[in-house]
């Protein structure tokens, strides 16, 4: 059998796909009881510290479980400053492999000109007790590197998660990207 089809860059003109509202994961239905609406936002910068102004950021979360009112997926374009923003529901813990529990997280796919295949990372939430025992976070030994996966609360329900594609600078470390 043939192997998986090769990836190619999404290029600079992918915005033709963009539709209003896809950055709001709560747009299909009411916020379920017990769920909290949050904003996940951040700035994407390259190895020169320049904003990635033509990026496509996609998020996926397995919790709250998908339903007709909640797809669990969204897409946002970065703006001229490299900023993206999503409205979503704060995820809870999900099972890991074996008996492990994973700390709440949102999976992120970054696609852009200059990326021949997607970059994948995860946004965890600073201050969650489960972060200390999350298997993926625990596998990253360097605390400065691990910190790149933590979104910080920047205001009421607003979580800041910057993404640095390459190198260090402006007080930012290269984001941990995942081989999935």
């Amino acid at each position: 059998m043939p192997t998986a089809t090769a990836s190619q860059t999404i290029g600079p003109y992918w915005h033709l796909l963009e539709e209003k509202g896809w950055d709001d994961l709560t747009r299909f239905g009411p916020v379920p009881e017990g769920a909290a609406r949050i904003t996940l936002t951040g700035v994407v910068t390259d190895g020169d510290g320049a904003p990635v102004a033509d990026g496509c950021v996609e998020v996926w979360q397995a919790d709250p479980p998908a339903s007709d009112d909640f797809l669990g997926w969204g897409r946002a374009a970065t703006d001229a400053q490299g900023r993206y923003s999503f409205t979503t529901l704060k995820p809870g813990p999900v099972p890991g492999r074996g008996d492990a529990r994973q700390a709440p997280h949102i999976a992120i796919t970054l696609l852009a000109r200059g990326l021949l295949k997607p970059l994948v990372t995860r946004a965890y939430f600073a201050g969650e007790a489960l972060n200390d025992t999350d298997p993926l976070l625990a596998a990253i030994e360097d605390p400065a590197r691990r910190d790149t996966l933590l979104a910080r609360e920047a205001g009421d329900g607003v979580w800041q998660f910057d993404i640095r594609l390459q190198g260090e600078g402006d007080g930012r470390a290269e984001t941990v990207f995942l081989d999935v």
Binding site: D46, L119, L136, A139, L165, G167, E174, F177, D179
Partner: peptide
């Protein structure tokens, strides 16, 4: 365009 946009560090296996 890959010059400043590729990660310099190895990926972490998930």
């Amino acid at each position: 365009s890959t010059r400043a946009r590729h990660p310099a560090r190895p990926l972490v296996t998930a």
